[in-house]
Design a protein around this nucleic acid. Structure first.
Length: 424
RNA sequence: GGAGAAAUGGCAGAGUGGUCGAAUGCGGCGGUCUUGAAAACCGUUGACCUUCACGGGUCCGGGGGUUCGAAUCCCUCUUUCUCCGCCA
């Protein structure tokens, strides 16, 4: 969330920038400022009351010691009143703070200056593209048919075990998954990311820290008995490692990578969007998560974009990189680049990665701060993350684009992870 | 799952009702000394809210209570450790 200082400092500019996201912030901003003023007035009075109370308590102790019982008892009467008052003020403080918090979490992050206006994904800017779209054989098959033909993925079996969107990978299909995970992790390590293996169930605090809670609760699987959530992305546990942490500027940049299965309820999805591997409830993903100095975060975003691009290039897939327009930008992001690969048999682009700079928006919720070397004051860090990469759609494109009359060719980059270079 | 013990600053560890935001040691930072370093010595060293500032307030695992006053007493939750049970 935004800090109240950001809102207070220049509300008109803030409202203007949020309009790029097609968000009308006037009312919320006004409410936030009012609420903040009330909070501070209340706090001032509370502090004064407590100050008098503390002073009085010390005096009482001293008076009793000196044997001045009457004076002490007199002072006690005053404390009764002050205690009552401080209790009221304290309760009010809690209420106002909650109220302010509720307002702040409803205000999205400010878009970066470069973000183009726009309503939907059709207004996204194509930054660049690469790779070549393959010329497919006659009677080329979509990946779900290929998966069946070569017995790589059994969607029906997954439905039997769990439900739709939980496929069973078999034989070379399973091995291909494993190869992709290893490939992505090894590449990340080469690029300077530290590999971590986080839990894939998280508590409420973590869900709140990265913003899945409270608003997107319905998108996560919930283990009610233990109040835990299955992670929708490794971003959640990995970013939350730094919740309530104060870093040193010299530690930057922090670059982590993690492989986890991801679980998403995907309520409301339907049709061709969910066919085959296009949208699953459980899928594998390698995520990259970075934390850095506000001055460095956009350079790091570029580095992350280049890194993700290099992965797709090595897999030899046709791709394009989009800069999201204001209307398509997520609630928490300041700037996002989406990566899409071309799935040749489906003849459609599939999103395989989304790389974002959240600036200090997440960090404020997380209380993720840092200190400049030698400085006392803490500041909010910048957080960034991206998929590198999500497996299912990569798999879909690989299967479709590399199909031949006799089977499916395995891209060179993956061959060292596999005992085969051809699927037939 | 059963029984017991514990949770204090970056770490270790005192503190059992007022003088405690908290002894002491280590670590960190600054200085003296030194050609330089080490040692020694001196000083300094948590976070948050509020204020232009002075200052004020909050925080001793979380929450609640007793009291004029709580790190200290009570309740509760969480976590950790030890023993037993179970177990990849």
């Amino acid at each position: 969330m935004l800090t109240i200082q950001e809102i207070r400092n220049n509300p008109d500019e803030l409202i203007r920038r949020l309009s790029i996201k097609n968000f009308r912030a006037e009312d919320l901003v006004q409410k936030a400022i009012q609420s903040d003023q009330a909070r501070r007035d209340n706090q001032t009075e509370l502090d004064q009351t407590l100050n008098e109370l503390n002073q009085l308590s010390k005096d009482i102790g001293r008076l009793f010691k000196e044997g001045k019982t009457d004076e002490a008892n007199q002072a006690k009467d005053r404390t009764t009143f002050l205690k009552e008052r401080s209790k009221e003020l304290n309760q009010r403080a809690g209420e106002i703070e909650q109220e302010l918090q509720n307002i702040l979490v409803e205000i999205p992050n400010l878009p970066h200056d470069s973000v183009p206006p726009g309503k939907s994904e059709s207004d996204n800017l194509t930054i660049r593209s690469g790779g070549t779209q393959p010329t497919l054989i006659d009677n080329a098959l979509p990946h779900w048919d290929l998966a069946k033909k070569y017995d790589l993925i059994d969607f029906d079996l997954g439905t039997k075990l769990t439900g739709a969107g939980f496929p069973v990978y078999k034989g070379k299909g399973a091995k291909l998954q494993r190869a992709l995970i290893n490939f992505f992790l090894d590449e990340a390590e080469k690029a300077g990311f530290l590999e971590v293996q986080p839990p894939i169930l998280v508590n409420e605090d973590s869900g709140f820290g990265t913003g899945q809670l409270p608003d997107k609760e319905g998108q996560m699987y919930h283990v009610g008995l233990d109040k835990l959530y299955l992670v929708p992305t490794a971003e959640v546990p990995v970013t939350n490692m730094y919740r309530d942490v104060i870093l040193q500027a010299k530690d930057f940049p922090i670059k982590n990578t993690a492989y986890t299965p991801c679980f998403r309820r995907e309520a409301g999805s339907y049709g061709k969007d969910v066919r085959g591997l296009n949208r699953l409830h459980q899928f594998d993903k390698v995520e990259i998560v970075c934390i850095t100095h506000p001055k460095e975060s956009y350079a790091l975003l570029d580095e992350m974009v280049q890194y993700v691009e290099s992965l797709i290039q090595q897999l030899n897939l046709p791709y394009r990189i989009l800069q999201l327009c204001g209307g398509d930008l997520s609630f928490t992001s300041a700037l996002t680049f989406d990566f899409e690969v071309y799935s040749a048999a489906q003849e459609r682009w599939l999103e395989v990665s989304s790389v974002s700079n959240f600036e200090s928006y997440q960090a404020n919720r997380l209380k993720l701060r840092f200190k400049e070397d030698g400085e006392k004051k803490t500041q909010l860090a910048h957080t960034l993350n991206g998929s590198a990469l999500a497996l299912p759609r990569i798999m879909a494109a690989l299967l479709e684009n590399n199909q031949t009359e006799h089977g499916i060719e395995v891209p060179k980059a993956l061959q060292k992870y596999l005992a085969f270079d051809f699927i037939d």
